[in-house]
Design a protein around this nucleic acid. Structure first.
Lengths: 208, 208, 208, 208
DNA sequence: AATGAATGAGATTTCATTCAT
DNA sequence: AATGAATGAAATCTCATTCAT
């Protein structure tokens, strides 16, 4: 969409507090418009209007429309990754249980995002897609999950198997999560899916 | 993009081979433009030019831009579904083998689509999204897979379990397929994924 | 003024005849707006309106506003240079007479352009400024005038002197021409200026 | 740029040295921005930032953007005019010598302006263009040069001739000066040009 | 049937200027 | 006096679609 890959970083940091709030307001407004009108009708004047400010002001906080979508994605993604790490780091729980909690968290999260943003959540994901920061995060995720699998598996597992197993885990949870999100299922059904998917993965990769 | 949800069906009931051919040419041209320029630069004049016709002519074959994307999706999807049905119907093969072949076909197919259309394949999927015909097909797929699972499972399986198992199969294969497509993996690696995913599913749902 | 140095060439060449005419109409409309509103109020919608077409159409003929100004400048400049060369090539006339005719043509020409465009002619000149094609033309002019001076001067003139003399001629005629253009003088006064400036230059550089 | 020809005079009658200084700082900042970003990117916020003040403050010193450009022009112009008058008034020098010094001063000055401000110097000149105060100054210049020529010429010169001669002098020096400025020539070359142009004019109008 | 020029609503973005704090 | 966030009119440019030829 952008020709010259312009900046995606938010623009300013005026009197800090007020500015932060304004940025959040704009992101929320953007999500509202996204839900209401879909990504094809997501325009900066509409976002500004929804945020109760002028277009000009909007452009004081974000350099372009892409940057807003990007910021929404970052906000969502980074918060989620922190929580997933928290679960992975909880050695008090069995590996299988941790897997279930992650699947659960992820399925709910994706579903909530979609509930909040409509299918536009996927639009955004998709939009941000191949961006560099996202790639980097993906790498981090891969690394952390590999460690999780290695530490959880009985000793003798071959390194290649561990690698594949951890990619399988991430790929399946992510793929299923997105798929479920589109269906807008209730919480208890999502829990069931999480239990099933986690068990399936655990059995397959041989978690004790 | 379209305000009043206008028709998405191709305009002419193509009784003549010439017209059929033209439609196909336009779809191919669209895919070419999509790859070359990305979805944001996919414009009807460009598609027409790539197809070697005038915009005016293009609009004789499709009522609007969406219809073209929609047609591409249908073409791909329907061909794929036919092949998947062929595999499911092949009673000469064991259920596990059929599952593997389907996963394999789907992973390759999605990957090829992406190879042909670039990440735009996902754009299209996504674009077509919640459309009615797509829903209908999804229903068909669900039904057919449910039958497959029921017939393949040892007698006593409960109906609810069968239903869930078949949805799991479809969801996992689809989710993983899309995820892999983005990575552009080579054929042999895709085969491995297919084998692993199929085995994992078969074990979990208890295929003999 | 332009960030990414976009193309300045006119855009298309549709059915040739009609297109050519349209391009000319746009240039004329641009000149009219320039006169009426000044360069600061020269906008593409205004030009389009003055040309009796839509903005969209305007952009089918020129890729951006700059291109229009550039085209006006080229049109004016190139026609003028052809006429000046015609005069320089006319060996039937004495060198002094040729100089006078050139000054006269230039003073009038600049003035006519200015009459047509108002001081906007200078706006454009200035705008186009350091563009490459313009530089090239300037070089051509320099070379041709140097030859004229060398051929017209009595034998023994040193090469350096010839060079300086020809640059003086060009610089003075150009400088005075622009200056007079701003004043909007009547034809007979311009003739007088041409006579005076040509004589002054001829005397100074020693034309016979 | 301005719709209703608003005031161009600086806002405060700067009674305090501090205010005077601030105005100068703003003008200098404006020149810096002009050089760095070009006239198309010359914005009031940018000027304010370069001057280390807020936009609001800037508008306490100048009523609008034009006024700043205008002030720069005036400052330059008026200082130059004072120096030129000083030279004209120096009866200790021969007329020819005074002419040479003026050409020299002017050529250097214009060239330096362009060196300081980039081609934007011409932008400004041009921008200020037809403004009233500038016209007035032009009149003053004309009058003073006419006196100079009359006093320097042998008695019997006709009044019309004197008038024309003095306009020729001014026009040629100004025209050539601007032309040379664009070429960014070194000081010694400019001196040569001054000598040549002054001699040419002096010879032509018949200075002793 | 085919063409492709014309349309113009609408998208993104900028920036001179104001005014509440 | 100073600040700088907010404004919103206005500029540039695109593109889906139509319709005269």
């Amino acid at each position: 969409m952008s020709k010259n890959k312009p900046t995606l970083a938010p623009r300013k940091r005026p009197k800090q507090a007020r500015s932060q709030q304004m940025q959040q307001d704009i992101l929320d407004a953007c999500i509202r418009v996204l839900r209401r009108d879909g990504i094809a009708r997501l325009t900066t004047p509409r976002i500004a209007e929804a945020a109760g400010i002028s277009v000009g002001s909007l452009y004081q906080y974000f350099p372009n429309k892409e940057a807003i979508l990007y910021a929404i994605h970052s906000r969502t993604t980074e918060i989620a990754w922190i929580e997933v790490q928290r679960i992975l780091d909880d050695r008090g729980l069995e590996a299988r249980e941790r897997l279930r909690l992650i699947a659960r968290f992820y399925f709910h999260g994706e579903t909530e995002d979609v509930a909040r943003m409509g299918p536009a959540a996927l639009d955004i994901d998709h939009f941000v897609g191949q961006d560099a920061r996202h790639q980097e995060l993906a790498q981090q995720v891969a690394t952390r999950f590999t460690r999780f699998v290695r530490e959880s598996l009985p000793r003798k597992a071959r390194s290649g198997d561990v690698e594949f197993a951890s990619r399988l885990v991430v790929t399946v949870i992510d793929g299923v999560g997105r798929n479920l999100a589109q269906q807008g299922l209730p919480a208890d059904v999502l829990d069931e899916w999480a239990r099933a998917v986690a068990k399936m993965l655990a059995d397959f990769i041989g978690l004790p």
